[in-house]
């Protein structure tokens, strides 16, 4: 039986389809047990771990539990928009090989910031803020604020 027959797309959605493509055995195993949300979480975990390692996964899941008012009382809880855009970025972007894994940080706005080194060892940062994306590339002298969904320009600045 094909995976498509087991997981109709109207039930499992795009993330889950990706899991079927990338980890068919795992998707079969969990299909009958977990809800759609759990399945989505599995897929997110897969992409986070692939790009950022287990530490990155642990940190992101911990950040998502930070309550409103964390830190000095003004910290915002995790922004669903920021998280979703970061996952989309992690799925598509190829980080430089041979460098340390990228780091992930949490911002007071509830956004996520990624930092890594380019092949030339220069600092690169992308911040997924709730209402914008910030990109910094030390070697290219890039320090820009983009519309949140302007992935095209984001990838162009990083290429």
């Amino acid at each position: 039986m094909s995976h498509a027959a087991i997981f109709p797309s109207y039930v499992i959605g795009a993330f889950e389809e990706e899991l079927v493509k990338t980890r068919p055995a795992a998707s079969q195993t969990i299909a009958g047990v977990y809800s759609r949300d759990a399945l989505r979480t599995q897929v997110e975990d897969y992409y986070i771990t692939k790009a950022l390692g287990n530490l990155g996964l642990i940190r992101i899941r911990e950040f998502q539990w930070y309550p409103e008012g964390w830190g000095d009382g003004k910290g915002r809880a995790s922004s669903p928009s920021s998280f979703k855009r970061m996952i989309g970025f992690l799925k598509k972007f190829a980080f430089p090989a041979g460098q340390n894994l990228p780091s992930v940080f949490f911002t007071k706005e509830g956004g996520f910031e990624l930092e890594w080194e380019s092949n030339e060892g220069e600092t690169v940062q992308v911040e997924f803020a709730p209402d914008r994306t910030e990109v910094f590339h030390e070697g290219k002298n890039v320090d820009e604020i983009l519309a949140p969904l302007d992935f095209e320009r984001l990838y162009r600045l990083l290429s």
Binding site: L55, Y66, N100, F105, F106, T107, K108, E115, Q125
Partner: peptide
Amino acid sequence: SDTWDGTRFSSQ
């Protein structure tokens, strides 16, 4: 912990 992961410090 939100700004240090054992390897790098955040710009934040």
